[in-house]
Design a protein around this nucleic acid. Sequence first.
DNA 1: TGTTAGCACTCACACTACTTGAGTGCTAAA
DNA 2: TTTAGCACTCAAGTAGTGTGAGTGCTAACA
Lengths: 348, 348
Amino acid sequence: MKMDGRKQQVLMAIIQDFIATAEPVGSRTIARKYKLGVSPATIRNEMADLEEMGLIEQPHTSAGRIPSDLGYRYYVDNLMQRGELTKDEEDIIKNGYESKLKDVGHVIQGTGDMLSQLTNYAAVVMTAQRGRTAFKHIQLIQMSEGQAMVVVVTETGAVHHRIIDIPESITAGDLETISGVLNRKLQGRAMEDIRLTLMKEIYFELAKQKQILNKAMDLINEGLTLEAEDKIYLGGVFNILNQPEFHNVEKVKTLLSLLEQEKLLHKLMSEVFDAGGITVRIGGELSNEKMQECSLVIGTYGLGDEPMGSIGVLGPTRMDYTRVVTVVEHMTRNLSLVMHRLITGRNR
Amino acid sequence: MKMDGRKQQVLMAIIQDFIATAEPVGSRTIARKYKLGVSPATIRNEMADLEEMGLIEQPHTSAGRIPSDLGYRYYVDNLMQRGELTKDEEDIIKNGYESKLKDVGHVIQGTGDMLSQLTNYAAVVMTAQRGRTAFKHIQLIQMSEGQAMVVVVTETGAVHHRIIDIPESITAGDLETISGVLNRKLQGRAMEDIRLTLMKEIYFELAKQKQILNKAMDLINEGLTLEAEDKIYLGGVFNILNQPEFHNVEKVKTLLSLLEQEKLLHKLMSEVFDAGGITVRIGGELSNEKMQECSLVIGTYGLGDEPMGSIGVLGPTRMDYTRVVTVVEHMTRNLSLVMHRLITGRNR
DNA sequence: TGTTAGCACTCACACTACTTGAGTGCTAAA
DNA sequence: TTTAGCACTCAAGTAGTGTGAGTGCTAACA
C-alpha cells in the first residue's frame, strides 16, 4: 500500500481533529470540516487503507478512528510543519529571562515554568554541565567544633553547600587559609581541569591540612558534577489534570509516581541527549511501559555544539505536536543564549 | 438535650467507623460492631438526638449517618484520646533526624517528608524564625563588572544567596574588605541586634562603600527574615489522591491550586501561630471556603516558649485525628529538640 | 420510663431492556 | 474511481424494576 496525497490529507485531518477534540473522528466529520472535495464513503475507503497500514485504529466497531503511535510518528516526521509563536508569546519568553538572568538556578526554574505555561503540559528541565562550568569561589566556614560548612559558587551563579566533619584540631584560621589557597589556585578553572592538573600542586601547599582538603575537593566535585549535572526541575505537573485522558485518578497517580523518580526521568531525557535538535518520543517509543499514553518532546541546549542539558515537554500522546515542537525549539535557542551570557561575558 | 455516656459512645462509634470506611454508618452496623449492649432501635433513637444536636447528619433519607464538622469538633475536644506511636515509628523519626542534623534546610524538608509518610496525608512545614537566628558568615563575591553575589550563612546552616548590582568602581579587593568588616562586626549576633545597634558603627567604618553596604544589609535582612521566615515546605501532597473524597479530579485540581498559594497556607498556619500546643481546624473552621472538606492539624515548635515555626497535616475532614494529633505532637517535640541542637551547641 | 420488636416507608444503586445515533463495510450504479 | 444506499454494529443514554440498607414511628414489654 502506498501513501498518496489524499491519504495524507485524511490522516492529517484525523490527527488534527483528534488532538483538538479527544474524540474518535468519523468519515462524515472529515468530509464536513476538512473540505477534501470527496464524499464520506471515499474517505471511509481511505481510512480502511490507513488502518491497514497501521497508522490509525478503531476503539470499537461503531466508533471513528484515532491515530496510532505510528500515525503520530508519520505526522511528526512528514506532515507537521513548524508553527510560529505570537508576538506576545515571544515577549513572555524574553521578559521571563530578562528578570531571571542572575543565576543559573533561577534560569532553569524559569525555563520550566515558561515551558509549562506556554504548552499547558508538564515540563522537565535537566542540567548536565559535565564539569564545563568554571569554578568561582569556595569558602570554608567553621560551624562548631569538628564541623565546617563548605560553600562553592560557580561562574554561572549556582551555589552549593554542605556541612562536613573536620578534625577538631583545625581552627577557623586554618579554614581561612585553605579557602584562600583554593580560591587562588582554582580561580576561573573548569572542573575538569581542577581534577586533573591542580590536585598535586595544592596538596603540596597544604600538606598539613590534607584531610580537610580531601573533603573540600569532594564537595567541589559533587557540587559541580553530581548536584548540578543531574538536577531535574519539574514544572506545571498539574497541567496534566486538565487533559481528559487523565480524568481518571488512578492514571494520574501512576504518572505522578513515575515523575517522582528522578532516575527514570534522567534516563528518558538522556536517551537522546547527544542527538541535538528536537526529538519526539511517542507513546510506546518511551522505554517505560507505564508511560505508553504519553509523549515527550525533548530539545538540547548548550554552547555551540557542546550540549549542556535538555528540556522536555511531557503530555498525552494526543498532544499538540506542532505547538510543542515550536515552543521547545524556541526555548532551547533562548536558553542556549542565556546560558552563554551567564557563563561567559555576563555582558549586559 | 444533654449528652450522656451512651450518646458519646454512639457518636464515637459513628466517627470511628466513618473514618475507617468513608461510608455512612447505620444503626445496625453500630449494634453489630461496637457492642453497646442495646438494639439498633435504641441506637436509632440516640442517633435522632445526636442529629438534633447537630453532631451528625444524613446524606439522604435512607443512608446511615456521617459526622458533621461539629461532631468532629466534639470528638476532638472531648472523646479522642492521644495514642502512642509504635517503636518502629519512633525509630523512623529518630533516624530520619539523625541523618539530617546538618543544616536547617534538610531538617525542614525531612520533617515534611516524615509527617506525610507517617500520616498518609499532606504535610505543611513553615519556618518563622523572626530574626532570632544568629548570623554566621557573609561573603561578597565579584561575578562580573557591576555584579556581585552575596552569600549569607546562618548559625542554623541555612545558606541564602543573591546576585546584586554594584557600582563598577568597586573592585574584588573592596568586596573582600567589606566581607571582612561585616564578618567581624556581625559575628554571632542575632538579626534583631544587627538591625538596631550595629548599623551606624559599620557605616562609619565603611563610609566609602556605602552603596554596596546598603545592598548587603538588605540581603542579610531578607536572608534571615523573609526567606527564612516565610518559607513553606510541602510534603506528600499526592497522598490526597489516595483519599476516596478526592477521587474526583475537579476537587483535586481546586485543592492543588489552593496549595500552590503560599500566602494562603501562610495565613492558615499563622492563624494559630501563637497558640502553642496542637490546634485542630475542622472543615468550615478553616477560613477558606474551598477547603470546607479538609481539616488541618497544626503544631508549633520552637525553643522554650519562643515559637520558631509550625508544622501541619492537611487531610479530609474524615481524617484519623487520633493518629494525626499524636504524630504532630511527637514531631513538634522532636523538631524543637533538633532545632535547639542546631542553634545552640551542635553538641554531638 | 426506657428499651425493643415490628413494620411501613424512603431512596440510592444495580440491573435490565430498549432506543438512539454515530459510524462502519459492502455492493452496485454512475 | 467515486459515490449513494443500505444493513449492521455497538457505546451510551434512558426508563423501568428490584433490592437492600437504612430510617421513623408505634405499640408492647421489662
